[in-house]
Simulated assay, not measured.
Amino acid sequence: MKKFTFILLLVAMTVIAGCGGNGDEGGAGEDSIKIIAAHNQTSPENPYQDGLLKFKEVAEEESDGAIEVEVHAGTIGTEESELVEKLQTGGADVVLVSPGFMTQTGIDEVNLFALPYLFTSYDHWEQTVDGEVGEEMATIINEESNNDFRIVGYWSAGVRHYYGKQPLESMDDLNGLTMRTQTSGVVANYWKETGAVPTSVAWGELYQALQQDVVDSAENAYPYFVQQNHHTTDNGKYITETGHDYTTRFLLVNGNEFDNYTEEQQEILLNAAEESVKAEREALYKQEDEYKQQAIDDGAEVNEIDRQPFIDLAKPFQDQAAEDMGVEDLLEKIRDNQ
């Protein structure tokens, strides 16, 4: 992770060298700035909030208050598409988004990180995003967005599992089940192949959709669906640990705005981003176990399943998607990291 942040810092310093007005004379102590940092989760008790609060703490402390950070938990957008738009238009300075929403900006390569069963463990995921593959993806995003988006850290939203109105004993149990998930792209195509019916429901409306039988099932990580009490509904009480996605989330800044900060401000913000990555991951890993236990205590039923048929089904999807995106080399590097 330090290597990744150091490279980002070098990129930032290189840009500064060619920009007027951002030399050594300026500093965070001389020019005050206000940073709007936002995520889409409405509950403040989640890893996203922990990460952004750490970002705020470090940025404000290291700048002696010259950098003010205002953290928004779903208050300026509960949909990631809203946050991406606000980052582009100046309504936010730091946002957290998933690969799926980044593809809506035309950067298809980021969908690599959303492929089912791409990662086998958190160690595998960390080695990937904190290493060469993460660096290459950051470069792709920055270049293809014309510097509108710059990654300053990789966060996780946990390991996603199935939960629904019935447990899964085999893949056949998914036949005909409506599932709240992505409704287009490789993720949707994968779930269609399992027999499920991908269905679109806004996150904020999913509890009611499960309660009122609008959808039969959904998929997400324990810290998120348990916080929203999805496991207390009839259509969410059976949790099968499919472990199909060790999720990746991008902590983004607007590169063009970032380049206007002084060298000292940039360094402070990158340090804050690095510390936020540590804080968010630590909170997430801890909450995985805590919220699983809460779900069980609340009466949810948890079972394991033989994942190998799901993994075997996912491999050709990964191969084809990587070929379509032109990132076969990155896919092979990810597999080599196992």
Rank of each mutant, 00 (worst) to 15 (best):
V15Q: 06
I16H: 05
G18K: 08
C19T: 10
G20A: 12
G21D: 08
G21M: 04
G21E: 07
N22M: 10
N22R: 11
N22W: 07
G23P: 02
G23W: 02
G23Y: 04
G23T: 06
E25Y: 09
E25N: 11
G26S: 14
A28M: 00
A28G: 05
E30R: 14
D31F: 12
S32I: 09
S32K: 13
S32C: 13
I35H: 03
I36W: 02
I36P: 00
A37R: 00
A37K: 00
A37C: 07
H39D: 01
H39Y: 03
H39E: 01
H39T: 01
N40V: 13
Q41L: 15
T42S: 15
S43H: 10
S43Q: 11
S43A: 14
P44F: 09
P44S: 14
P44D: 11
P44W: 07
E45H: 12
P47L: 13
P47H: 13
Y48A: 07
Y48W: 12
Q49G: 13
D50I: 04
G51Q: 08
G51D: 07
G51K: 05
L52D: 05
L52A: 11
K54H: 01
F55L: 15
F55T: 01
F55V: 06
F55E: 01
K56Q: 12
K56N: 02
E57P: 00
A59N: 01
E60L: 06
E61R: 14
E61G: 11
E61D: 15
E62C: 06
E62I: 04
D64V: 10
D64W: 10
G65C: 11
G65P: 05
G65E: 10
G65H: 09
A66P: 07
E68R: 15
V69W: 00
E70W: 08
V71S: 03
H72V: 09
H72P: 09
A73T: 14
G74A: 11
G74Y: 04
G74H: 07
T75A: 11
T75I: 03
I76F: 05
G77D: 08
G77H: 08
T78V: 15
E79D: 13
E80R: 03
S81P: 06
S81I: 12
E82S: 12
E82Y: 09
V84N: 10
V84W: 03
V84Q: 09
L87T: 08
Q88P: 02
T89S: 09
G90Y: 09
G91R: 05
G91D: 02
G91I: 04
A92F: 01
A92G: 05
V94F: 04
V95C: 05
V95H: 02
L96C: 04
